Simulated assay, not measured.
Amino acid sequence: MPNQPPAPAASSGSLKDWCRLLFVLLSFLALLPLIGVLSIILVGPLKPKFDLQSGEVQYLNIAADNITGTAAASITLTIRLVFIADNPNKMEMKYGESRFAVLYNDIPLGNGSIPGFFQGGHSAKQVVATIFVDGMRLLQDDATGLINSSLNDQVYFQVLVDVNATTRVKNLYSPGVRVSVECDIMIRPREQTLTSKPCEDV
């Protein structure tokens, strides 16, 4: 009686191929989160956004000074500004020291800073900065403009924000990104109030 022919090996080989393919697919899916983390670390994070939410004038004094015969004016100012920092990344962000400066007609008057801080992924955080101007003296056209603006109860300033940030995953840090924005503010000396416009990247 003739022997039965062996079962074809094709089905066994096909099953092994499917198992290998399934293993590769599952391995790739397991590595996807790691690939995403590495891409953020190597390429760099998205820039966080800073915008001015509100401001408060704590002290303001603008005085004319024509003793030398040249138009001059001095300004002493303390303002408290509340910014919103928005982290668009999934990962936690680490910020370095944030620096703030106030200018009049592009002339630096004073500055302030806050220490570094951490911010969770996809979150918004209030950042409060106090900026001081201590008896800054302006001359000629700038002094005249400042005095006239004060008399008209509308003095315009620029606020510059400079921040360095990086994302953190456990003990791994991405390349840093720099955030620089400019915010226009207007102060009414009589009422000691402050209004602002949306900040813009610079």
Rank of each mutant, 00 (worst) to 15 (best):
I185M: 08
E56W: 04
D86I: 08
H122K: 13
G44K: 04
T76H: 10
H122T: 04
A10T: 13
K125A: 08
K197P: 00
L138C: 08
F83A: 02
E56T: 15
S54H: 01
N66Y: 13
E200Y: 08
D134E: 14
S27P: 00
D106G: 00
A71C: 03
D201R: 15
M1Y: 01
R20Q: 04
L22R: 01
F28A: 15
N171L: 15
T78V: 15
M93G: 02
N171T: 14
K94D: 06
N152L: 10
T78S: 14
I35W: 13
R20G: 03
C199W: 05
A165Y: 01
K16F: 08
L77T: 06
P189T: 07
L42K: 12
I107C: 02
D142A: 15
A124L: 09
I79P: 02
N152T: 01
L46I: 01
G145Q: 02
A129C: 11
N3K: 12
P48A: 05
K125Q: 15
V102D: 01
T130Y: 02
L25W: 11
R168Y: 00
E182L: 13
N111Q: 11
D51W: 09
F50W: 10
Q158K: 15
I62P: 03
F100C: 05
A64V: 11
I67Q: 12
M1P: 03
I187R: 02
L52C: 06
G13S: 07
G120P: 00
D201F: 14
N66I: 09
R190I: 02
G176R: 09
P48G: 06
L77H: 07
V181T: 14
V181M: 09
G116N: 08
D184Y: 04
Q158V: 04
N66S: 13
